[in-house]
């Protein structure tokens, strides 16, 4: 079936079998391998992309269903101005370890901030509860999304806020032992 899809601002025209999953189309046909696959039951969310701005699990959408839509993947976050604030924040706050869940987490974070410029910890945790991470215990993902929100607000009014280093390492007690 013939489809046209705008992915990260670039229009693609293609002929695809109806059963091809959007995740698979992005990864193998377009080579956008930043979108990952982690389960068979629509549970893990590592395949999340934005479809007309809304997060969807691309393993549970057929590519043909995305005909005539705008898709944003992790590869589309960076712009001519450089890294997106959410990308900077994930690095700054150590919001990733193995990086497998990270593209999805950043896209969900971006969509959240667009709806709610100042999400509190509970709101962030709720918003990312369709996305699993096995590495970080979510602590620094939450911090990163909130830091990106602060940065986004900052560019509008308060000035840059990204160097809010709430993850300064905990104080320690030292004792040399022989």
């Amino acid at each position: 079936m013939e489809i046209t899809m705008t992915v990260n601002g670039v229009a693609h025209k293609d002929d695809v079998e109806p059963r091809v999953l959007l995740a698979d189309y992005l990864r193998t046909r377009l080579g956008l391998t930043g979108t990952h696959i982690g389960c068979d039951t629509t549970s893990c969310g590592v395949c999340t992309v934005l479809m007309d701005g809304t997060p969807v699990k691309s393993c549970t959408v057929f590519a043909v269903q995305a005909d005539d839509t705008e898709i944003t993947t992790v590869e589309g976050l960076k712009s001519a101005d450089g890294l997106h604030p959410i990308q900077k924040a994930f690095k700054q706050e150590h919001g990733l370890q193995c990086g497998f869940c990270t593209p999805a987490m950043m896209l969900v974070g971006k969509a959240l901030i667009e709806q709610n410029p100042d999400p509190d910890e509970d709101e962030v945790r709720w918003a990312i509860s369709g996305n699993l991470c096995r590495c970080t215990g979510y602590v620094n993902i939450v911090k990163a999304i909130r830091a990106a929100a602060a940065e986004s607000r900052g560019t509008a009014d308060e000035g840059p806020a990204l160097v809010d280093l709430t993850n300064e390492p905990s104080p320690t007690v030292s004792a040399p032992v022989g």
């Binding site: 389960c39 945790r125 369709g130 979510y138 390492p169 905990s170 104080p171 032992v177």
Partner: peptide
């Protein structure tokens, strides 16, 4: 045998953690 039955906590259930540290070097 899948993530509907093998349950992995999300950010919502996962506790918030408070860390502290002591440092006792390995000699």
């Amino acid at each position: 045998s899948n993530f509907m039955d093998y349950l992995i906590p999300t950010a919502y259930e996962t506790p918030r953690f408070e860390l502290g540290a002591t440092v006792t070097p390995s000699p």
